[in-house]
């Protein structure tokens, strides 16, 4: 079954048509990478999928359940209960967006306890297990400011995982990190891929995208220019635009 299905979504900001009709599906256990030039619509696509932006046209569904629909007058409406859908996905931001006044542990457990209303002790023991898995054992009581960027990003991945999402989105998860710290975050994402976590990753790390993805989408000018298995897109690009983009990247 599709975890996420996006049908022909369009989004503009004023005169700027950022998404001009994008459709995609993500199946359970699949890793989809979205690559493409800045301004091509990657982040907007992710923000629409995670309900941080509303689309102008097109339908988004999670687990076969549509988030938005056309009413009988043809007007696009969003579901009244968006939190139902927010429970299905998690989002890891480019600049982490951890809560600076909460300790590492509190950052992770607060939403499961206060939003999902789960048992506190159970959430704490899960959080500690996740931290251990991510190489963050013993950091529970530190504040985000005491951690390196790479550690902060791993904490934010744990924070998203603690909500037990069906699908995890990454918005350029390593763009705010220096090359030394990028590796530790990518390693964690690779680990999640091996565990068959369903993920959508917007990234500029081409070799990482190639290694970790089941499928790659090249997005440019608000449209999907090319889509396929990583070896197809990276080694045998059908479109000239994709070839040109990848060549510039390899320079």
């Amino acid at each position: 079954m599709n975890v996420l299905k996006i049908e022909n979504i369009k989004k503009s900001f004023g005169d700027n048509n950022v998404l001009k009709g994008v459709s995609l599906e993500v199946n359970k256990g699949e890793v989809l990478s979205i690559i493409g030039p800045s301004g091509g619509g990657k982040s907007t696509l992710l923000r629409c999928a995670t309900l941080l932006e509303t689309v102008d046209d097109g339908i988004i569904s999670y687990m076969g359940d549509p988030v938005n629909f056309y009413d009988k007058n043809g007007k696009l409406c969003y579901s009244k209960d968006l939190n139902k859908f927010r429970k299905v996905f998690g989002l890891v931001f480019q600049n982490f967006n951890l809560f600076p006044h909460y300790s590492v542990l509190r950052n992770i457990i607060d939403a499961p306890i206060n939003v999902l209303k789960r048992d506190k002790n159970e959430v704490i023991s899960e959080a500690k297990a996740l931290l251990k898995k991510m190489g963050l054992e013993g950091k529970e009581d530190l504040y985000p400011c005491a951690l390196s960027g790479g550690m902060q990003q791993r904490v934010s991945i744990v924070r998203a995982l603690a909500m037990k999402p069906e699908i995890l989105f990454f918005d350029e998860p390593t763009s705010a990190l220096d090359p030394e710290l990028t590796g530790e975050v990518l390693k964690v994402i690779k680990q999640l891929a091996l565990e068959k976590m369903t993920m959508v990753i917007v990234t500029h790390e081409m070799s990482f995208a190639r290694a970790v993805s089941d499928r790659v989408i090249f997005l440019d000018g608000g449209l999907i220019v090319e889509e396929g298995k990583p070896e197809e897109v990276f080694a045998n690009s059908k479109s000239e635009r994709t070839k040109q983009f990848l060549e510039n990247y390899n320079k």
Partner: peptide, 25 residues
């Protein structure tokens, strides 16, 4: 804005976001 967005994605209500995340900062 990222603080509001992180809270929104985690499913915090508007009131929770203001009282727990924004106001203390």
């Amino acid at each position: 804005k990222g603080q509001y967005e992180a809270a929104e994605v985690l499913g915090y209500s508007k009131t929770q976001t203001f009282i727990k995340i924004i106001l203390p900062q």
